[in-house]
Design a protein around this nucleic acid. Structure first.
Lengths: 262, 262
DNA sequence: CGCTATGTTGCATTTTACGCAGCAACTCTG
DNA sequence: CAGAGTTGCTGCGTAAAATGCAACATAGCG
């Protein structure tokens, strides 16, 4: 039976503290105490005590001399020490398996690492193989389906900041070498929901991948399928694309919350 | 005057919530409700309400089906959306400048990015240059002073996991090519406090760098100086090393808290 | 040098979070 | 399979803890 009074399970002050963390993290400028108080619609003194607690615990920090708040070292520590990729693998592996068997081609899971995409899990068509195939391999971001899926939300200026303004290295005839073209490709991926690789990195290989998004649309990984071009024609893009997108969305939902429904 | 009652500025439930976040983040396994209750020495019901609040806000999450807690997507979002390197640059730049003028050689600031070290700021000997020199450059981790400083806390098995078991690529005669030697080098860096580069990557260049550590000893960046070997002999290591270490420590302290002293 | 805006502390009030008790689901264990 | 022991979850009365207010402190500004 559902709880009669669901509100009683809410700790107000903790909730408020988390709201503060969120707003500080999303703000590009340091946040003043007044802004916090206004945001939560509480007295300045209460805001002060909440912020003070967060600071003492290292979750917030004040730039030397200033009295504004920025994220503190604890957030740094927490996010780094935690093995996100392991969690992603755990949640995604069953879905990866499902995808591979449904389509009967190799399915991959990738995350971003620096300026590359890193394959962290894969399931082959005929049999399940945990540590084999391309798992562990690093590939460029701008000329692979997984890489481009991971870049999907980047705007032209972001791309320029990350790859510089010069032309990109060409691997094959179809490699995208200009930032402008890459940016256009990204907007196409956002629209369609999935990215493809027309032998832009390695020859005679087709790949289709979709970004895995969590709350706030942040892209945390990509999932997709690869096959020799001979077995994987362009006609299959719509059908496979929809399948892959659906799987990616489901993984994202699992990661985002899991209100623990069955 | 110091507050008469410093405890009154402390919000208990928020503090407890943060403690939960910390313990979940540091634990390798998912954490059960009972463990949380025991840790904080509070009733299970209170622990439940705290954890429940954290979960509804996305800071914790339950693996599908299970009732244990792991870090949630909000932590993911927060840590990624925040521009850490920008913050590091802001805090470290004055110190970098000081270091460069004191020693009168180029000083660099670097962070880890994937399997490389990325230079994010530099100050040249004679003049301050914000966006020039090696800023933006990626260099290998295992054969540069900055890279090795960033790796300092890694144990042999970590290194093996990150670089594979094969030999490392050789750039010069003095490049370290075995994981075992690299591990030994790391323990030396931990002992001394700083790393050096004996022309292991590029020729005729010496470099000395120290890791920047925040709370829990997590390494978040490195700071160091570079010079042609002709001007920078081995004799200078102790003196320069101590200087660089002191600067690195101060930056770490600034980042870790800033109890806002002057 | 006032004046306002913001940060910080003490204190009285009452909201809020706590522990207790009890139920439900699940796991051992014989 | 029964019964005992864990653990997760909810309702409720109470006490403690968080809140808002007022006052003080400090910084920025004209």
């Amino acid at each position: 039976m559902p709880p009669k009074n669901p509100q009683s399970q809410f700790i107000q002050s903790l909730d408020r503290g988390l709201t503060i963390l969120n707003s500080v993290a999303h703000s590009k400028q340091p946040v003043s105490l007044k802004e916090i108080a206004d945001l939560l619609d509480i007295d300045r003194s209460s805001a002060f005590r909440l912020a003070h607690t967060l600071r003492r615990r290292g979750f917030l920090s004040c730039p030397p001399g200033k009295k504004d708040y920025v994220l503190g070292s604890s957030m740094w520590t927490l996010s780094r020490q935690y093995d996100w990729s392991n969690m992603l693998v755990k949640v995604a592996h069953p879905e990866l398996k499902l995808l591979a068997t449904q389509i009967n081609e190799t399915a991959h899971l990738a995350i971003r690492e620096g300026k590359s995409a890193l394959f962290i899990d894969s399931v082959h068509a005929t049999h399940v193989i945990a540590v084999a195939g391309q798992t562990g391999e690093l590939v460029p971001l701008y000329c692979t389906a997984h890489g481009k899926a991971l870049l999907a939300d980047a705007e032209e200026e972001d791309l320029r900041g990350q790859f510089g303004s010069g032309p990109l290295r060409r691997y094959t005839k179809s490699t995208i070498t200009s930032i402008k073209a890459l940016s256009k490709e990204c907007s196409g991926i956002r629209r369609r929901g999935f990215a493809t690789d027309e032998s832009e990195y390695g020859p005679e290989m087709r790949c289709l991948a979709a970004p895995i998004r969590i709350t706030d649309d942040l892209i945390v990984g990509s999932i997709g399928i690869s096959a020799p071009a001979s077995r994987f024609s362009k006609d299959m893009y719509p059908a496979y694309g929809e399948k892959v997108c659906r799987v990616a969305d489901r993984i994202g939902e699992f990661l985002s919350n899991t209100e623990a429904k069955s």
